[in-house]
């Protein structure tokens, strides 16, 4: 397992696409900062009545969504690039224990996802607050200790997206197909859930991957959202990851590379 980790770590660091996808992290922080600037300038030019009613939702959440997508792409590519070239055969000739290869990939992709999530959410959080200054925009009126659970939940969701990307890539074996599935999980299904009538819309929305972090930290993602308890949300997140990796393990061990 230690050798599989060393090999997969070299693989991950030695292709440019890793750095291109991780460039989404600073880009997401910049976008959050620009949104904070925009909101601040709108506030400064608003009437007294509009100022009193100004509400801006947390901007690090927007940055986190970009990071989720980028890290899912990293997860997908870490396996589909090997399928596409046939290098998976070389990998399994060098490391016949396929489960160990998958475990090594999952550890590295998951850890990269967690670090990327933290590196997105915390800078976006502090930067957007610093830019907003003492303007009362609601999002900047809570303390760090109040917001810490949501920041940590958001970072773990970025890691989970990376793992789900790895799992979908291993099962679907094709980058384009897997990215389509990721986009469905990230955007299409949550949008469908939002537009379905109650009770099914809110029920479906509650278990959407993209919404689970909000329930984990107890912050409603949108008005009227059905909220699961943090424990159930954590269990649901675990199930997403376990399902993705179990399916990946079956696909890699049962099918010839």
């Amino acid at each position: 397992m230690r050798r599989a980790l060393a090999a997969e770590w070299i693989k991950l660091r030695s292709v440019r696409s890793t750095y291109w996808t991780l460039a989404g992290v600073p880009a997401a922080v910049v976008i959050a900062a620009l949104l904070a600037l925009h909101a601040s300038s709108l506030y400064d030019g608003a009437s007294a009545e509009a100022k009193a009613n100004a509400v801006v939702s947390p901007l690090e959440t927007v940055a986190a969504m970009i990071a989720q997508l980028c890290l899912a792409v990293l997860g997908v590519r870490s396996i589909t690039a090997e399928h596409a070239t046939g290098m998976l055969r070389t990998t399994f000739t060098a490391m016949p224990r396929r489960g160990a290869v998958l475990a090594a990939k999952a550890v590295l992709i998951g850890a990269t996802g967690l670090v990327a999530g933290l590196a997105t959410l915390f800078p976006a959080y502090f930067l957007s607050r610093w830019i907003a200054g003492d303007r009362p925009l609601v999002f900047n009126e809570s303390t760090l200790s109040q917001d810490l659970p949501s920041l940590l939940a958001g970072a773990s969701l970025v890691a989970l997206f990376a793992l789900v990307g790895l799992g979908l890539g291993a099962v679907l074996r094709n980058a384009a197909t897997a990215l389509g599935a990721i986009f469905a999980l990230w955007y299409v299904l949550p949008m469908i859930a939002l537009n379905l009538p109650a009770p099914w819309g809110p029920r479906l929305g509650a278990v959407m991957l993209a919404n689970l972090a909000f329930q984990l930290s107890g912050d409603p993602p949108y008005p009227g959202a059905l909220m699961l308890s943090p424990w159930i949300a954590a269990a649901a997140m675990f199930l997403y990851g376990a399902a993705a990796l179990t399916a990946a393990a079956l696909a890699l061990t049962r099918r010839a590379p």
Binding site: K11, S17, T85, M87, T93
Partner: peptide
């Protein structure tokens, strides 16, 4: 073993 020389990822040195 050498099975297929083309089976390497092109974006790696």
């Amino acid at each position: 073993a050498l099975l297929d020389a083309g089976a390497v990822q092109g974006d790696r040195s």
